[in-house]
Amino acid sequence: MTARIQDIIVYYKKVVLEGDCNKLIEVAKNSILAEQRAEMTKKMSTPSISEPVTTTVNPWHGRYDFDSDTARCAVQMATTLFSIINFFGSVLGARSDKFPAVLRSFLSYTGTVLDNTEIDLLASVYRNSCMHGFFPRGSNVAITFNPNDPATECLTSEGNYVILNVMALHRIVSSGFYKLLHTSVEHTGQMQNNFEIWLNNEEGQKIEEQIRSYKKYQIQKKSRGLI
């Protein structure tokens, strides 16, 4: 029996958006506080007559750099958001299973406008690289995750750097996702059809065959007393 797309949306809301993503945001906030406390301690331990003791925020805003030992979970948040886009972009009717296509599908639903250059950059430098190699790939690229940053543009440039703002991406994904919760019955029916097509495509059938093969393998091991 095929799962109902409405149930999947509710599950994503509870487990992914309000579960995993909120936990990752909490980690990032705690890391910011830890950095600020460390900076304050450093300033207070070496006071300067000419400079007042102040709390400063790292201008890198949580980007990964090799001098930092504070975890922000920026990549983990980004890959979680990319996964949400990947699935719901497909069930919203993407014309292809390639990430640029599912991203366009999701963005169209949310009303977010990105040009082709931005979509290609998100797909290759960030989505593909982070999914397969953890860090963004390319020269002078960065990823930032500061929950206190009100920015709404997920891609920006600063100096010679191209930057993915994970919190801005989270806002885009969240707005689209919560819109899905209140979609029309007619649209839900279309999504259900797309979901079933997605389940039964060539890759889906291959996965089901792998699951069946593994179950058969386990039965054979049991029959030979190996487990």
Rank of each mutant, 00 (worst) to 15 (best):
Y12F: 14
K14G: 01
V15N: 11
G19P: 11
G19F: 12
N22M: 15
I25P: 04
A28Y: 06
K29H: 11
A34S: 13
Q36F: 01
Q36G: 02
A38Y: 08
E39R: 13
T41E: 13
K43M: 14
M44C: 14
S45M: 15
T46C: 11
P52M: 04
P52V: 07
T55L: 09
W60H: 04
R63P: 01
Y64W: 12
D67C: 06
D69S: 06
C73F: 03
Q76P: 01
T80I: 03
S83V: 03
I85M: 01
F88K: 02
L92F: 05
F99A: 09
T110W: 02
T112I: 08
T117F: 00
T117S: 09
S124M: 04
V125G: 06
N128S: 13
M131E: 07
M131H: 03
G133C: 09
F134K: 08
N140H: 12
I143L: 12
I143H: 04
N146Q: 07
N148M: 06
T152H: 01
E153T: 02
Y161W: 00
N165D: 08
L169R: 05
F177D: 04
L180M: 09
H182Y: 06
S184W: 01
N193Y: 04
N194Q: 11
E196K: 05
N200W: 11
G204V: 08
E208V: 09
E209I: 13
Q210F: 00
Y214A: 10
K215E: 14
K216F: 01
Q218M: 09
I219F: 00
I219S: 07
I227R: 12
